[in-house]
Amino acid sequence: MSTYKVPTMAEMAGKGESPEVLFWVGCAGSFDDRYKAVTQAFVKILNKVGVSFAVLGPEEACTGDPARRAGNEFLFQMQAVANIQVMNGYNIKKVVTACPHCFNTIKNEYPALGGKYEVIHHSQFLQQLINEGKVALQGGGEFKGKKITFHDSCYLGRANNVYEAPRDVIKALDVELVEMKRCKTKGLCCGAGGAQMFKEPEPGKKDINIERTEEALATGASTIAVGCPFCLTMMTDGVKNKEKEAEVKVYDLAEMIAKDMGI
């Protein structure tokens, strides 16, 4: 019996190897207690399927997205240029990440600073693995036949027009996918984008995540699926606020696939 492997780029380079794809973990995936479980679920899937991957480990730094959205272009570019130097140093060609903010920044904003990679979101990566038959779904897991709703992350959806990949992943689990009233191009933000994750909201009559959670709960779904660490936090907090955490769970797509695979 062997254990899961999480090779770093440095280790691989030391052996003169290079992986097919860099898994960009992101800050939430590295430090947020809840999202670490998503990172772990995703590397388990990668191990199980036999994908040649590596992470940057301690060499990774924040992409700079929240600094840029909060207006601090200097700080953003300092982060970006340093990351690009590391990635170009390893001659990285393809990046997969479970964070739509990292996805958007590396895919769309790093090229102007000299970082040109093929970047995909983990929902797209999972969709490909499922389509290629590499992920053997059992379909009889805890989600079978359950009502599941998907909350579109703004940085995946409107920002980059990825709407179908996460839905295809969910459908592959043999579940009933139910849509919220505001979905896809009309999806309502969880409230955390644009660096809102890092400050209290402005004065208002309601928090955005509560508005969105109410909509998700109205579908009657027992699981709210997300594909973004900030959305995961906001929706989880919303469900707790509504005291529904016993009946309704918030999961990332990778966790759902890993659960179904029994890993």
Binding site: T3, Y4, K5, V6, T8, V25, G29, S30, F31, K36, T39, Q40, V43, K44, V55, G57, P58, E60
Partner: peptide
């Protein structure tokens, strides 16, 4: 930053 991997590497 890389501590998340310790647990999974032992599994």
């Amino acid at each position: 930053r890389f501590n998340w991997a310790e647990q999974v590497k032992e599994e």
